[in-house]
Amino acid sequence: MPELRKERLDRGVKVRSDSIYALSSMKEILYLLGPGLVLILLLLVLPLVVSPYWQRVMAITGVYALLSISFGFLANYVGLVSLGGAFYVGVGGYLSGLLNAAGVPLILSIPIATLLGAVICTLLLLPCLPLRGVYFAIISFIYPLFAGRLIAATGYFGGTDGIPGLDRFPSIWVALYMAIFILLIVLYGLSRMVNYEDVGLVFRGVKDNELAIKASALNLTWYKVQAVFISSAMGTFAGAYLAHLYGWVGMSLFAIDFSILPVAATVVGGSGTLYGPLLGALILVPASESMRAFGTLRIVFYAVLLVFFVVFWTEGILDFLKRKYEQFEHWVRI
């Protein structure tokens, strides 16, 4: 029996677009832009065709996608693994809820809660920024737990009951397209920043090597602060958005789901880019929604999937698809 080996060759257009050659045809441009265009079109058109229930699921998916990108950005490009997504969500949600309950209209309370919330989160995380790796992960994991328990214990901000009766979005269309546009803007802005701006290189440097950043006369803490601010702003927006989607804020905004799902999405989608976490969220959230009938068994399924991806299929779905898209594969005899 002849032995076979899988040979992989990059497609010509991939080779050329990686270096500095010009593209030669419309077809090649389409080839490169295709995946992005498909994503944008899908996000814009899908709400028009699905049922109201799935429109709501889409909105929530958007929120999780935002959180996943926030996690992926901080973990892949700055090297801070923050398991505290729920903290951002909670802070943003409660801020927006408190503002709204005090009479600030939704159109103002969301942006104010996003920015102010990000400032608050960044300030609170500031003392932990020197911590590395696992320790930052642990402490950021503790923050939302702490905040949730503190609200329950003190009874401030409505205690265990939360703050009900907040303004809702005028219609699901407004809510949904708001989520989608914010998502697209964030994606575009962030990927430009990490790939084409010099500050993106500094962030990568922070991840790769903190000492070299210090030796390059760059204030390490200041760049970490910037990155945490950007990332937490996405989270606080997600929280403020959810507050008005549900018309209610409560301790569940600090729930562990908001911290764990972004991690799962990044693991499943693939790390290394911003699109991996996005893809992961787009797959996981609807999948989890359609398994609602199974009760907590769905979490078991999740957990097993997570372990499978993190242990056995570390490249994630995105890299797999990318390889299929960019390379020819065929078996050759050796």
């Binding site: 790796g133 696992v134 992960a137 068994l297 979490i299 957990a303 097993v304 997570l306 372990v307």
Partner: peptide
Amino acid sequence: MPISEIIASFGVGLAILEFLRW
């Protein structure tokens, strides 16, 4: 890979706990 270790072991724990609950 500390982060992977955490995710993997936490995933196993989550699976055990939620399976028991179910």
